[in-house]
C-alpha cells in the first residue's frame, strides 16, 4: 500500500509533534521557574543587605541565561509545531476547537505560574517554594478561583467538544495509571512514615507526581 507524500510526512510528524508540545511546555515551565529563582534570589539578597558578590552576580546571570534559553527553546518548538500542524491540510473543526482550548489552557497556566512566581512571599530563592510557599490571602483566593472554576469549565468543554475518542482513550489510560499511582503510592509513603522510616508525606509532591504520571501516559498513548 503506497503512502501519499502528504500522509507520509504527516505520519512521520506525529511522534515529533509530541516532542514539540513537550518542549513548549517545558520551555514555559523552565522560564517561569528561572524567573521565580531570580525574583527570590534578589529578594533574599535585599533582606540581608550589602553589595552582591561576583558569585551572586554569576548565579543571577546563569539564571537569566537559563530563562532566555528556555524561552528560545519554547518559541522555536512552538514555531515548529505550528508549521508541522499545517502538513496535510487545514485542521478539522474538532482540531480547531482543540487548539483553541490548548491556547486558553496555556494562557491560564501561564497566568497561574507567573502569579505564583511573582507573588511568592517567602522569596528565599528556593524554586520548590513556587509550589508550596505561602501566599497572600487575596492571591490565594484569586488562584483558587482560576483553578477551581475556570479550569474545570475549560476542561469540560475540552472533554465534550474538542477531543475525539482516541484522545479520550489516551486520557483515560493516563488517569487510570495516575489513580493507581496515588492509591498505592500515598498509603505506602504514609505507612512508611508511621514506621518512622521516611519523612512525612508531602501532599504537593504526591500531587505533582500524580499529574506527571497522568500526563506522560496520556502523551505516550496519544502519540505512540
Amino acid at each position: 500500500m503506497m503512502e501519499s507524500a502528504v500522509d507520509k510526512e504527516a505520519n512521520a510528524g506525529f511522534g515529533a509533534q509530541a516532542g514539540r508540545i513537550a518542549m513548549v511546555a517545558l520551555g514555559g515551565f523552565g522560564a517561569l521557574l528561572g524567573a521565580g529563582v531570580i525574583t527570590g534570589f534578589i529578594a533574599a539578597h535585599q533582606q540581608h543587605g550589602g553589595a552582591m558578590s561576583v558569585r551572586d552576580l554569576l548565579i543571577l546571570a546563569g539564571a537569566g541565561l537559563f530563562v532566555l534559553g528556555c524561552l528560545y527553546a519554547g518559541w522555536r518548538a512552538g514555531r515548529s509545531l505550528r508549521a508541522a500542524s499545517a502538513v496535510g491540510g487545514p485542521p478539522t473543526p474538532r482540531e480547531g476547537r482543540y487548539r483553541l482550548v490548548m491556547i486558553l489552557a496555556a494562557l491560564l497556566g501561564g497566568a497561574i505560574s507567573l502569579t505564583l512566581a511573582l507573588q511568592n512571599d517567602t522569596l528565599t530563592g528556593n524554586p520548590l517554594e513556587l509550589l508550596d510557599g505561602p501566599l497572600s490571602p487575596g492571591v490565594a483566593i484569586a488562584l483558587a478561583l482560576l483553578v477551581g472554576v475556570l479550569l474545570p469549565a475549560l476542561s469540560l468543554y475540552w472533554h465534550l467538544h474538542a477531543i475525539d475518542e482516541q484522545e479520550a482513550a489516551a486520557y483515560n489510560k493516563g488517569a487510570l495509571f495516575a489513580m493507581y499511582a496515588y492509591w498505592v503510592g500515598a498509603p505506602v509513603w504514609w505507612l512508611l512514615w508511621r514506621g518512622g522510616l521516611v519523612a512525612a508525606p508531602d501532599g504537593v509532591l504526591i500531587y505533582v507526581a500524580t499529574a506527571v504520571i497522568a500526563t506522560v501516559i496520556w502523551f505516550w498513548a496519544k502519540y505512540r
Binding site: 501519499s4 504527516a10 505520519n11 496535510g88 491540510g89 478539522t92 473543526p93 475525539d164 482516541q166 484522545e167
Partner: peptide, 21 residues
C-alpha cells in the same frame, strides 16, 4: 488524505492515523 477522512468522521488526523496503524 488523512485530514479529509478525519474531517468526514469528525475526529483528529491523529485518530485516523492510530486506527490505520
Amino acid at each position: 488524505s488523512q485530514a479529509e477522512l478525519a474531517g468526514r468522521l469528525d475526529v483528529s488526523r491523529q485518530a485516523v492515523n492510530a486506527i490505520e496503524t
